[in-house]
Simulated scan of single mutants.
Amino acid sequence: MRILFIFLVFIGFYSCKEGYVRPINVSEVFIEPIAEDSLLSVRALDFNEEYVFYGSADHFGKRALNKELKINIIDLNVSNGKNHFKYIHKGDSLPLHFRAIAEVNGNFFALSISNPARLYKLSRKGKGANLVYEERHEKVFYDALDFWNDQEGIAIGDPTDNCISIIITRDGGNSWTKLSCNNLPTAEEGEAAFSASDTNIAIVGEHTWVATGGKASRVFYSPDKGQTWEVYNTPIIQGKETTGMYSIDFYDQNNGFAIGGDYTKPNEILANKIRTKDGGKTWQIVADVSGLGYRSCVQYIPNRNGKELVVVGFNGIDYSNDAGETWKHLSDEGFYTLRFLNDSVAYAGGRGRISKLTFR
């Protein structure tokens, strides 16, 4: 018993020691359907303790995570159902397409991609969605949405003038203002962004990174929640409209990872994975011989010291435990995007479904 006591004290000491991380090596992923519908095409999702929120081809919606027990007294039937709400909004008579969403303190935001681009806010207690921003332009196309806190948020999109489009809110999403090109770096010819997974924006505290793609693929950086901006070059594959970064994530202020490639050539593995250790100022190509081709989303696993990542795409799910140097293929199941709940559970969206992913 004394030996056991000493062992437990030893383990407890190192578990509480600053910087200690429980060893883990993911070997498989268990996929559990949350919602299935042939009309779903989910490239953006978020969640809270009650719902998983998503943006899809012709609507945005939310699906209750907790099962409700329903009893029909007349027919004596008992069923476990999950509430599912769809919100269809039209622009110029056609359904709007939503690929950028965010849940903030119970409020749900959904941004449509193209002309007219419309941003809706659905309050926790509200029955309908309020239009909080609209932009009409033949070149308008929004790609991603995120928030620094419950009052300040950002959305980014393709250039309509000579800079990328950035809109910002400072009042909880009730109003949004588009930044002037006078306050942003000039976009290069053919530089835009991809609306593949709603992960073109990475935020750590007040620091913000935005990934562009296309004929030029660079990282825009703001240290002060969008007040000022600078831009950094990257070595990722670029030069065509379909090449570049499709997704970016940062573990902390220094360590970040971006992935992409060319979705028209999904098996090409060269120069489609890059990593930074200095806050995005410089980037290095990694894992050129890993066999990991085009992927649309990358996310760091929480609380893993920036060493463990998961990527998804229509070619499957992959995992790295060495900051992206090598990769393990976990599944051929295709998804467009995912978000982690904790260090073992994530939610993912793709064609026809939303799923819960458990890594172990």
Rank of each mutant, 00 (worst) to 15 (best):
D343S: 15
I201W: 04
G352E: 04
Q227N: 12
G349I: 02
I259P: 08
G205R: 07
Y120I: 06
F250D: 09
L69V: 12
F13L: 11
D46I: 04
T212M: 06
S41G: 10
F147N: 03
N83M: 12
I6V: 07
Q284I: 11
K67N: 08
H329L: 12
I113N: 07
V219G: 00
G91L: 01
L330D: 03
H329T: 10
L96E: 01
A110Q: 00
L4R: 13
I237H: 00
F141Q: 05
V312A: 07
I317G: 02
Y133K: 00
L330I: 01
V345F: 14
L111D: 00
E333R: 13
A35T: 07
G91N: 09
T243F: 00
V286D: 14
I237Q: 01
F141W: 12
A44P: 01
I168F: 11
I203N: 10
W327N: 05
N305H: 02
P33F: 09
P302Q: 05
F340Y: 06
E241I: 02
R339F: 06
F10Q: 13
N72K: 06
G19P: 00
G55H: 06
S197N: 08
I154T: 00
F109G: 02
Y263C: 10
A102L: 03
Y336E: 10
C163D: 03
L357V: 13
N255Y: 03
V312H: 07
E241C: 02
A202D: 06
I24C: 10
E191I: 03
N80C: 13
I317F: 11
R353L: 11
D198W: 11
S296V: 03
L4Q: 15
V104D: 01
Y133T: 06
I354C: 08
F359E: 15
E49A: 13
E135Y: 07
D92C: 11
T282V: 12
V9M: 15
G352H: 10
A287N: 14
H89M: 13
T326S: 10
V78N: 12
D143T: 01
T243D: 01
D224T: 08
F47P: 05
V42S: 02
P235V: 15
G293M: 01
V289R: 15
L119N: 03
F53I: 00
N48V: 07
R63C: 09
E188I: 11
P23L: 07
V210F: 03
N342Y: 04
V311I: 13
S296L: 00
T160M: 09
V231I: 08
T282K: 14
R43N: 02
D37N: 14
Y300A: 08
A348G: 10
Q151G: 04
G261M: 05
G213R: 02
